[in-house]
Amino acid sequence: MRPVLLPPNIIDHFYRGGDRLAALRGVTLASERCPEEWLAATVHRAGEPDVGLSRLEDGTLFAKLVEADPVGWTGFPQGAPGAGPADVGLLVKFLDAGQRLPVHVHPTRPFAEAHLHSCYGKTEAWHILDVRGDDPAVWVGFRADVDPAELAARVDAQDSEWLLGHMNKISVRPGDGVLVPAGQPHATGAGIFLVEVQEPTDFSILLEWSVTTATRDESHLDLGFDTALRGVSHRAVGPDELATLRHHVDPATRDGALQRGLPPAADSFFRVDIAAPGDGPEPGEVVVPRGFAVAIVLGGSGELGWSGGRAAINQGQAYAVPAGLGDWTVTGAARVAICRPGVGWPELT
């Protein structure tokens, strides 16, 4: 087996953005609303089976490769209990927001199991690549407990000022990692370019649809808001808890080991680590442990190496790396984001 180069898989969405994504991946956008790319995706967009799934250069669905050899790709004969036959434990995206995203919520695993017939909810995390504007920020969770009836009324009225005003605003910079637990309302600000990792679903409950092309009827997962809003956490996320959701790694740092890109609280869901070998007179090397991974070359050039093979890598490329490769290495002047399933996967805790 060998790493598989992933061609661009940029998709239309209900919000604007995508110019930095297009520049990194070397493509021309079809519209001003192409802010996302799904990488090594074996799941599709909710309600749209033909949107989101990754394909190889020859048009083959990446999911078919995994389904044909799950042990080779993931190290296990099947994914999480109750998941599909091509489950790899996570979904990886680029997200390049040209506008503030709407306030929205993703369901927890218990809510998804009860109402959406899924073993996965949608906890997610962001590793910030670039920011624009004078006040780059994201919002996660409410600052104080919120009355469910008032929240429902504010959502019905599309009161954006109230929603944002009651949430934790977090200033961000490149190298920041932010975990967004399922159930927590959240939004990213305009100008944020990031790598997103999440549980492999496309479940979103929009609390604010008026700033997008989505409608009210498209905002509650066909559950109705009476049910959908039960998936929202109304309790405060205080400073101490908020601190556990954040981590920073200096984008200029080079090291001979993987650098953590997300807070430890993310580990049971997914991991993002940065491989940036030293750039001294002798080429550096970072070892990546065996297991399925999505490797994104954020900058520079170098090589991926494994027992019996090597592959040159360059800025803007993305690879699906199979577990069957064994331990592998990143060498040279490249800076690579390594996205992997959570510790303990395919068991779900």
Rank of each mutant, 00 (worst) to 15 (best):
M1F: 12
I10H: 03
I11C: 01
I11T: 08
D12Q: 14
V27Y: 03
L29N: 05
A30E: 15
S31Y: 04
R33T: 12
P35Y: 05
E36I: 15
E37Q: 12
A41M: 04
T42K: 11
R45L: 14
S54P: 01
L56F: 06
G59F: 00
T60F: 03
T60S: 13
L61S: 09
F62E: 08
P70K: 11
G72S: 03
P77N: 06
Q78F: 07
Q78S: 15
P81M: 04
A83Q: 10
A86E: 11
G89D: 13
L95F: 14
G98F: 04
L101E: 09
P107I: 04
P107L: 06
F111S: 03
A112Y: 02
E113N: 06
S118T: 09
K122C: 09
T123H: 14
V131S: 06
G133N: 01
P136M: 11
V138S: 01
G141Y: 04
D145T: 12
Q158F: 03
Q158W: 08
G165H: 03
H166I: 00
K169W: 12
K169G: 10
I170E: 08
I170M: 10
V180H: 00
T188D: 03
L194R: 01
L194T: 03
V195K: 00
V197G: 00
Q198A: 14
P200I: 13
P200N: 10
T201W: 04
E218V: 02
H220F: 11
L223N: 03
G224S: 13
R235K: 10
L242C: 03
H247P: 04
D250L: 03
A252D: 15
D255M: 07
F270N: 12
A276Y: 06
A276C: 11
D279S: 13
P283H: 04
P283N: 05
G284T: 12
V288S: 05
A295P: 00
G299Y: 00
W306C: 08
G309H: 00
Q315P: 02
Q317V: 00
Y319M: 00
T329E: 09
A333Q: 15
A334C: 12
A334Q: 13
R340G: 12
G344Q: 05
W345N: 06
